[in-house]
Design a protein around this nucleic acid. Structure first.
Length: 199
DNA sequence: ACCGTGATAATCT
DNA sequence: GATTATCACGGTG
């Protein structure tokens, strides 16, 4: 039995982790360990890239188009998964952040493979395919048994050291006017698993 | 650089 | 119900 991929409750990030400013959560998710226990298999990887989508004003955030069936979970409490399909074929995984009623989330963009992964995990669509994350995970409790995040390589209460983090503009949001230029994409500096590393 | 692909939501009839 | 515009991507060349 591989103990490395078993859930250890004390190490799972609690709801309060997500109930914070989205930029803080996005940075602090780097280095954490995402575990998916769906389909009888445990798959896990270290988060190395993430993007923040923040509130109704952010034109790159789906919630800026209003509260719809698709975006409903973003308006709910923090610590739940927002999973949607883009371009008709790719699933994307987000962690809902901030207080209930304020729509915001962090898009998980890339993982460094750790367990049970046999296809690429650089990119939000590929990551979901590798972990077998589909729409059935939309609204899943990230503090629950199916899909969760462990503290990873540092204590849950310790933010990541700033010198390890690089930031830049978010991918694929050129339509969002001034919001497209916000440096709300974060990745582990120099990590080989980061998608489309631009600098 | 190019473009397939189909869900989503708004805008019609 | 039908039509249309849009798209938080990825594979190919």
């Amino acid at each position: 039995m591989n103990c490395n991929i078993l859930r250890r409750d004390g190490l799972v990030l609690s709801r309060s982790f997500y109930d914070r400013p989205t930029l803080d959560v996005a940075r602090d998710l780097l280095g954490r360990r995402l575990v998916c226990a769906g389909g009888g298999t445990q798959r896990a990887g270290r988060i190395v890239e993430a993007e923040a989508y923040i509130g109704p004003e952010d034109l790159a955030c789906h919630a800026s188009r209003g509260r719809t069936p698709r975006t409903e979970v973003m308006f709910g409490p923090p610590g739940y998964a927002y999973v949607y399909i883009v371009y008709g074929m790719h699933h994307c995984l987000n962690a809902v952040t901030e207080r209930e009623g304020f729509p915001a989330a962090v898009l998980i963009r890339a993982l460094e493979p750790e367990a049970g992964l046999d296809s690429r995990t650089d990119g939000p669509g590929r990551l979901c395919r590798a972990l077998a994350i589909d729409r059935s995970f939309n609204g899943a409790d990230l503090t629950g048994p199916r899909l969760f995040v462990e503290a990873g390589d540092r204590p849950a209460s310790t933010p990541i050291a700033e010198e390890l983090v690089a930031s830049g503009s978010r991918v694929g949001v050129g339509y969002a006017g001034e919001w497209a230029d916000k440096p709300w994409r974060f990745w582990l500096k120099g990590n080989r698993w980061v998608s489309r590393l631009k600098r």
